[in-house]
Design a protein around this nucleic acid. Sequence first.
DNA 1: AGCTTTTGTTAGTTTCTTTAACAAATAATG
DNA 2: CATTATTTGTTAAAGAAACTAACAAAAGCT
Lengths: 406, 406
Amino acid sequence: MRKIDPNNFTLAKRGTSREINRQIALTLIRTHQPVSRADLSRLMETNRANITFLVNELLEEELVREGAQGNQKVRGRKPTFLYLNSQNSRAIAVDVRASRTYLMVTDSIGKQTGDIVSFQTVFDPEKFAEELSRQIVNILGGGLAGCDGIGIVIPGMVDPKTGIVVRAPALGWRHVNLLKALEARLKGIPIQLENSGKACALSQIWSTRGDGLNHGDIVFVSVSDGLGIGVVINGELVRGRHNSAGEFGHVPLSIDGPLCSCGANGCWEAYISNPATLSRYFGRNVSGRKPKALEVADFTIEDLIVRARGGDSKALTALHSTARYLGLGLATIINALDPWRIYIGGEITEAWDLIEPEVRDAIKERTLTGELGETPLKIVPAVEYPRLRGAVALVTAPAFAAPKVA
Amino acid sequence: MRKIDPNNFTLAKRGTSREINRQIALTLIRTHQPVSRADLSRLMETNRANITFLVNELLEEELVREGAQGNQKVRGRKPTFLYLNSQNSRAIAVDVRASRTYLMVTDSIGKQTGDIVSFQTVFDPEKFAEELSRQIVNILGGGLAGCDGIGIVIPGMVDPKTGIVVRAPALGWRHVNLLKALEARLKGIPIQLENSGKACALSQIWSTRGDGLNHGDIVFVSVSDGLGIGVVINGELVRGRHNSAGEFGHVPLSIDGPLCSCGANGCWEAYISNPATLSRYFGRNVSGRKPKALEVADFTIEDLIVRARGGDSKALTALHSTARYLGLGLATIINALDPWRIYIGGEITEAWDLIEPEVRDAIKERTLTGELGETPLKIVPAVEYPRLRGAVALVTAPAFAAPKVA
DNA sequence: AGCTTTTGTTAGTTTCTTTAACAAATAATG
DNA sequence: CATTATTTGTTAAAGAAACTAACAAAAGCT
C-alpha cells in the first residue's frame, strides 16, 4: 500500500499502459530468454495479439531481436525465440578505488566484452578526469562512437543528480564536480555516478545471472578499508535525503569502543574493516588509522588469511574476532530492516569457510527471533567484480526500470 | 529507478490508466479540498474533460461530493467545489496496550466522530476478542451496520496477512490468531491488524492535517515501556521478510551494556525506555525489568518529568541521560536511512523542552555529516493519538493508495 | 446590453487493450 | 499420404480511456 505523493505524482497518459507493459515484456525477455511470443503471453497472462504489438515495437527499437526457431516436442507451429539485442552499442563501467581505477567495456545489456584494464588513481580531480577520459577513449578503441553511457562508482558520498562527489575520504575529495570535469572531455555521452556500496547493491538486483532475481529487500555489505553498504527496498535503492542512506558502518557496537575514522567511537567499521582486523593481529590499537600507518604497510588482509590457513593461531584469532563483530553488526541490519538476504563482499570473504560459524552465532546472539537469525548470507567473491557490475547497472538498468507512475 | 519483479508484476489492463488517475484525483481532492474541477485539471496538468469523467465516476461511487459554489474575485463562472464524502460509513480504530485498550469511531476518511472509550485489557486471547467485540458493537450503537472496517494496533510483532500476533511480550501473546477470533464474532467486517510502531508511522504519512504531506522517507520512534519504530520509504511501510523490520530498539549502543528484555545486552531500548529512565532515577540496575518490579510501582515517567520541572536535580539528570542516549540511537537511524524527518512519540515528549539540546548534541556527535546532524525531529504529543490514527489509516488508506503497477 | 473570462460538458479522435477470427506451421492419426 | 489437431503468430474489429476542440453556462467588466 503506497501513498501517492500529492507533490510529485505522474499522471497516466495515453501511452502509459503501453509503457508499463513494454517494460514488463522487456524484463521477462531479459529473465526468460530465449522466450517466444506465446510464452510471453502466458507469463504476462494476456492475449498473444497484445504481445505481437509490444514485441514489434521492441523489435523496431532494436532492443530485442528474433533468433532461431525453437524445437517443441508437441505438435504445432514452432515458436520464434526472442532475445535481448545486445549488439547495438556499448557501456563503460568504471570503479574508482584509492589504489587503482578499473575499467570494463560491456555490451548494451551489461555483458563484459573485453578485458578489465586499470590505472593508478590520480588524486587531483582534474588530472584524474583527464586520465580517465584518455583511458575510456582508449578502451573504446580510439573514439566515443557507439558508446551508450558511462557508469562510475566512487568510494564515497555522491550526489547522482548533480554528479558531485560530496565526500570521498579515501581519495581526499570534498565537493568535487567530477561529472562536469568528465562531460567537458567526453562530450555527449551520458555519465552516471554512484557510491560504490550502493552500486554493489544495484549489481545484485540487476544481475541477470543465477539467483539475482529479486524476491525481496536486500542489503549489500562490502568490507574493505572501510565499509560500503547499499540497501534495496521494494526494488529501489534507498538513497535518503542527502544520498547518505546505508551508512550502517557507523552504527555503534559500543559507544565507548575504538576510535573510528569518522571521529566517533566504537563504530562497526572500526571493528571489522581490514585495517581493524590487521591491527588486532598486530596487537595495536590503530584501528582508526590507515594501513599505511602500520609498520608492516604492505601486509594485507589476504596475507593474514593465508597465515591463518597456514596455522598461525594469532591470525585465526584476529579473523574470528572480526567474524564475531561482523555478525553483531549484521544483526543490527537484520533487526532494522529484516531483509530477504544480505550479500557480503570484500577480501574477508576469502576466509568465509573459516569465519562463517562465528558470524552466524553472533547474528543469532543479537537478532530478535529465530527466523531473523537465519537470514541468508550470500558471499560475493571479488572475481564477480560487484562494483564494476554495479557501475554497468547505472547505465543499462534504466532501459529496464519500471516507469514512474502515480 | 525501480526494478520490475519478474515474479510479481502487474500488467496494465484497459482500466489501469483510469485507476491511476482516479487515485491521483482522489488524493488531490483529499489534500486540497475544497477544490474545483478546473483546479484539479491545473494540478494534474490534464484537460478538464478528463477531470469531468474522473470526477463523475467518484461522484457515482459516493467517494466525493459536490459542495457550495466558490466565490472568485475574478470574472467567469463560479467553480463547484468538491469534497471527500465522509458521511457514508464509519471505521473503528483500536489501540491495544498492556494496561488498557482504546477505541475510537471515525467517519470513512478517518475523522474522529465520537469520544475515545477504553477498557482494561484482558490477557486471555479469547476473552479479549469477546470483550473487544462487545465494545465495538457498543461504540457503534448496538450493531455493525455502516461499519467499513476495523483497524487494530498491537504492541508486538504482527503478520497483517494472516492476522496472527506472532509475539507481543507486553500482552504475553505468542502466535495468537486474533483475526480469526474476531472475525468469528464480527462477521463480514474487514479487520486489519498492525504493529503499533508501524501504525504510528502510517499515521504520519496518511494524516491529512498540517505538514503530514509526505515529502520523503520518515521514521516514527515511539518511546514507552519499550520502543516501537516504523519506517516509511518511498511512501510505503517497510515490513521486511518476517514483518519485523524497524526494530531499531535492539540496535546496540554498547554490546556490553545493560541487559535488555530481549535477552541481549546494551540495546538502545535498555537505555531509553521509560523503565530504563525510571531505574536510572532510582539508581538501580533494573532496566531489564518491567516497572511493576520497582518498589515504587505507580511512579511513572510523567511523575519523574513533573519532579524534574519542580527542581529535582536527580530527575533532571536521569532525563538528560535518557536524552543523550536517545540522540545516540537516533544518530544510528539517521546514518542508516538518512530520512527526511523523524517523528518522536511517547511520554518523554512531554519533557521535550528539557531534553532537546542534549538529544540534538548527541545526534551531531555520531552523525557522519553536518547535514545529517540537522535532520528534523518532530514531536507527536500523546493528545494526537498517533496509534489510534495509525489504526484508522489501516482501514481508510487503501481507498487512496496507489494501484500496484509494473 | 454586450463583451470577456472562467467553469464545466459534449462530441469526436487517437491510442491501446482486448476479443475473435484466421493463417501458418507442424506433429499425430488413420 | 492426406487429414486432423494443435500451437504460434497476425489481423481486423470492438471497447475503453486519454485527448482535442468546440460549446454552453455563468458571472464580472465596460
